[in-house]
Amino acid sequence: MPNNGADFRGLGANAGNGIVYADGFAGAGGVVGPKTIINTTITFDPPSLATGAIAVSSGITLTGTALGDHVELYPPYDTQGIAVQAQASAANTIVISLHNRSAGTVDLASGTWGVVVKRRV
Rank of each mutant, 00 (worst) to 15 (best):
M1C: 11
P2S: 05
P2G: 13
N4Q: 12
N4M: 07
G5F: 14
F8A: 06
R9K: 05
G10V: 11
G10E: 10
L11S: 15
G12N: 04
A13D: 14
A13L: 12
A13W: 12
A15E: 15
A15L: 14
A15Q: 12
G16L: 07
G16A: 06
G16M: 07
G16Y: 12
N17D: 15
N17F: 07
N17M: 08
G18P: 04
I19P: 09
I19K: 08
I19N: 13
V20L: 08
V20S: 06
Y21N: 12
Y21I: 13
A22K: 12
D23P: 04
G24V: 09
F25W: 13
G27T: 04
G27L: 11
A28Q: 14
A28G: 09
G30I: 02
G30P: 08
V31Q: 05
V32N: 15
V32A: 10
V32G: 13
V32M: 08
G33P: 14
G33T: 11
G33S: 11
K35I: 10
K35N: 10
K35M: 11
I37E: 01
I38H: 05
I38M: 04
N39G: 05
I42H: 00
I42Y: 02
T43K: 12
F44V: 03
F44I: 07
D45I: 01
P46W: 05
P46Y: 06
P46R: 03
P47D: 07
P47A: 03
S48D: 03
S48K: 12
S48Q: 11
S48R: 10
A50E: 06
A50W: 09
A50P: 09
T51E: 10
T51Y: 06
G52D: 09
A55S: 11
A55I: 04
A55W: 12
V56S: 11
S57W: 03
S57V: 10
S58W: 06
G59H: 04
G59E: 03
I60L: 10
I60D: 02
T61I: 01
T61W: 00
T63S: 06
T63Y: 00
T63H: 01
G64N: 01
T65H: 02
A66H: 00
L67K: 00
D69P: 05
D69G: 00
D69S: 01
D69Q: 03
V71I: 14
V71Y: 04
V71D: 01
L73K: 08
Y74V: 15
P75W: 09
P76V: 04
P76S: 02
Y77D: 09
Y77K: 00
D78I: 08
D78V: 07
D78P: 10
T79G: 06
G81M: 00
I82S: 03
Q85K: 09
A88M: 00
A88I: 00
S89T: 02
I94A: 05
V95C: 03
I96C: 05
I96T: 04
I96F: 08
S97D: 13
S97G: 14
H99V: 13
N100H: 09
R101S: 11
R101C: 15
S102V: 08
S102P: 10
G104D: 10
D107M: 09
A109N: 05
A109D: 11
S110V: 04
G111W: 09
T112I: 13
W113G: 03
W113N: 01
G114D: 02
G114Q: 10
V115N: 05
V115Q: 02
V116T: 15
R119M: 01
R120G: 03
R120W: 12
